[in-house]
């Protein structure tokens, strides 16, 4: 059984519709820890040691956040800048995260069609996630296909519920190691593999 650590980055949790439901669906699952990072670090003063310990104790790490301006809320950037230290996460001696799985869970108002990369001036979600992917690659981690919820503005309660149970299924599968790492990296979205 993989130990799964979900780090939720949402600055306005009480007004969130999708991320809140997604987090609730996986919060309390056996072998899964869900941490609401904006609550833990309201002043952005990140406890680097503590965060590194969490990473060491996890096999699978999930960054869950809304896709603000095609990227993450600022606390995740701060977290990445501080926690993925040289000598710990990367560098000649930085092998602490080697082989661990990492996945982005993204929610976005835009539909999947809006991210079609063929149209001029548009990029796909995967292209836009490149900095995250490359960061984790440098840390010798395995960046899995992301879990993406599109068109959140138009989702009704049922739609959100569906997304949430899908998310729980994905997290369960990751925890139970139902798929090989190769399989988990093969698709554009992890949704395409499991749901």
């Amino acid at each position: 059984m993989n130990r799964v650590s979900i780090l939720v980055f949402h600055p306005l949790m009480h007004k969130s519709r999708v991320n809140q439901k997604l987090a609730l669906a996986v919060d309390g699952m056996e072998g899964v820890s869900t941490r609401f990072m904006y609550d833990i670090y309201p002043d952005f003063y990140i406890d680097v040691k503590k965060e590194q310990e969490v990473l060491l104790e996890s096999d699978t790490i999930v960054w869950q956040h809304p896709f603000y301006w095609y990227s993450s809320p600022s606390l995740l950037k701060e977290w990445i800048d501080l926690v993925l230290e040289h000598g710990f996460a990367y560098g000649r001696k930085g092998r602490a995260l080697e082989g661990k799985q990492i996945m982005s869970t993204i929610s976005t108002g835009g539909r999947r069609e809006a991210y079609l990369s063929d149209e001029d001036g548009k990029f796909s979600v995967r292209q836009l996630l490149a900095p995250f992917e490359q960061t984790t690659t440098l840390c010798r981690m395995n960046y899995l296909s992301p879990f993406v919820t599109h068109g959140t503005h138009l989702l009704d309660e049922n739609g959100i519920g569906e997304a949430a149970s899908g998310y729980a299924k994905v997290i369960g599968a990751l925890r139970d190691g139902l798929y090989s790492t190769e399989e988990l990296r093969k698709h554009e979205y992890i949704n395409d593999l499991i749901l």
Binding site: P11, L12, K15, H153, L154
Partner: peptide, 26 residues
């Protein structure tokens, strides 16, 4: 201060647009 993170106004706007052109949009 934190209006930007609150997507409800945007959601309303999109829903409005969606209602006025039910044929679907991108």
């Amino acid at each position: 201060q934190d209006c930007s993170w609150d997507v409800s106004s945007r959601r309303e706007e999109i829903q409005q647009i969606n209602r006025s052109s039910p044929k679907g949009s991108n």
